[in-house]
């Protein structure tokens, strides 16, 4: 595509924006532009500027444990909101705050939007693994909604623009997240997050783990999670056994080979579980 032929569209509301995209899916939405410019992806016919669509907001319903985040809300706007709410580190918002705060650098977080991050879903995404631990709904086009795991699978087949992200969170379980990267301002090589609850005798009665940065973008495996049930936190041998035999499915890149990533992820996961015991 000749770059000179690309056009910019400035719709004044969301309805106008998604109709432009539905009419021609090669005219793509642009919110923060960080992924588009980093990947130099110009194989399209134009950009839809979402600046005027009023999609930057956070609305929380604390009675029903639901938070609605507008698609063009930037990471720093969400961080500021979460900091003001003083959530504990092991709550869902605690790990979401951790994930958002470690994504890229401060000025980039002024541009990275939550909708753009999910629409483009780069392999270095810091927010996907925490979001997969909750009931996250993606609201798109004319208020259609789809659950996040299904969205990840189908997003490239559906012409759409994300309107908002609706997260129904659970306050009765605890959460943990950790990223692996070369430096703290670098893009994540992988990030794992897990939610859990522990019985009085320190056994897992719930465990759910999501890893981003794998060959298939994410790793979620119900049977892997089920193996943790009833394992005691002190039983390091059983925990190691479950984790060591699992293949997360990383691929090699210019920095690390797949075996290194696999083993690092396993080691960090074991370390993290040991840490929650304390």
């Amino acid at each position: 595509m000749n770059k000179a032929k690309l056009k910019w569209y400035n719709p004044q509301n969301f309805e106008e924006a998604y109709k432009i995209h539905l009419n021609n899916p090669l005219i793509i939405p642009c919110a923060g532009s960080t992924v588009i410019l980093r990947t130099k992806r110009f194989k399209n016919e134009g950009f839809i500027n979402l600046k005027y669509c009023n999609l930057s907001y956070i609305k929380e319903d604390k009675i029903n444990n639901i938070i609605r985040i507008g698609a063009t809300t930037t990471f720093n706007e969400i961080i500021e909101y979460l900091k003001s709410q003083n959530y504990s580190e092991d709550s869902f918002f605690g790990i979401l705050l951790n994930s958002l705060s470690s994504a890229a650098s401060y000025p980039l977080r002024n541009r990275i939007t939550i909708g753009g991050s999910l629409f483009d879903l780069p392999i270095w995404s810091d927010i996907i693994s925490p979001l997969l631990l909750t009931e996250t709904n993606i609201i798109y086009n004319d208020d259609k909604n789809i659950l996040l795991p299904e969205y990840i699978e189908k997003r490239k087949k559906i012409p759409h623009i994300i309107k908002e992200i609706v997260i129904k969170y659970n306050t009765n379980i605890q959460y943990f997240t950790q990223r692996f990267s070369l430096t703290n301002f670098d893009y994540a090589v992988f990030r794992f997050s897990f939610s859990y609850s522990i019985s009085k005798d320190f056994r897992f009665n719930y465990f759910n783990c999501a890893i981003s940065g794998t060959k298939n973008l994410i790793f979620i495996d119900k049977s892997f999670n089920e193996q943790f049930i009833n394992i005691c936190l002190d039983d390091e041998e059983s925990l190691k056994k479950v984790i060591e035999k699992q293949l997360f499915g990383f691929s090699s890149d210019f920095r690390f080979d797949e075996e290194y990533k696999e083993q690092t992820c396993k080691n960090l996961l074991i370390e993290s579980i040991k840490r929650i015991k304390n």
Binding site: S33, P107, R111
Partner: peptide, 28 residues
């Protein structure tokens, strides 16, 4: 030119941003 070094930082509408990661056409 990939948002890592910060040499191109400017204040855009009150916020510090990497100007290499923004389209000029979106800054109307």
């Amino acid at each position: 030119e990939e948002g890592a070094c910060g040499a191109c930082l400017v204040i855009l509408d009150g916020k510090a941003v990497n100007s290499c990661q923004i389209f000029a056409a979106s800054c109307e």
